[in-house]
Amino acid sequence: MIVAEQKPLKEIIAMTSPFKKLLIVGCNECVTVCHAGGRKEVEQLAAALAMAAQKDGRPLEIKEVTLERCCDPEYIEQVRPFIDQYEAVLSCACSVGTQYFADTYPTKWALPALNTSFMGGSLAQGIWAERCAGCGNCILHETGGICPIARCSKRMLNGPCGGSTGGHCEVNPDIPCGWQLIWDRLVALGRTPDYAKIMAAKDWNTSRDGGPRKIVREDLTI
């Protein structure tokens, strides 16, 4: 899923303070799961912003709504009947959702309440970690199911570098060395000879380096 976290309240107050009528929109998908922008967080944020406005003596009218999904035109349309009553949308969706509001309602400000961080998952209650860098050409079958692009700080395809110490990355002892993890998996799978294969220079064209990406499924388009 997409993992995000709420921006510091001070930053959100600063970006929303020019507006008197604010539509705060949450999303029921990933950001609900990672407790960043679901119904509950929208409610808390609305209360905090109302309080800040009151303290500053600014009038502020807020409407809260949480959509099923903010990365889908069908759901984004659900705010059309009332969006004209508001000056700006404060999106508690990931940045994909925020951009859907910007695309769909060209005359309305779309403000991000979250920092969209990475594609990953939950490790334990309150802890999430990155697992995919979206390179567009998966190699997990060659690396024991651990991604060197997302999990090595230098995205090395032929690691580990000389900074791997005690299973940790040189960048930070809190980061497990991605290549130690790959090696451990190869050992567990009895596939250590696989390590000897040199992984060639990657074609980054399928990654962000090829420009903004798009998938068209002819079999699904109408």
Binding site: S153, K154, R155, M156, L157, N158, G159, C161, G163, E170, V171, N172, I198, M199, A200, A201, W204
Partner: peptide, 28 residues
Amino acid sequence: LTGDHQSFGDHPTAANVFDLDSIQMIQG
């Protein structure tokens, strides 16, 4: 060389490249 991570230096906010690693550079 692959190179030390930029977070060690005086421009920790820089983007890194790592288009290749040292082994791929040798190959090239």
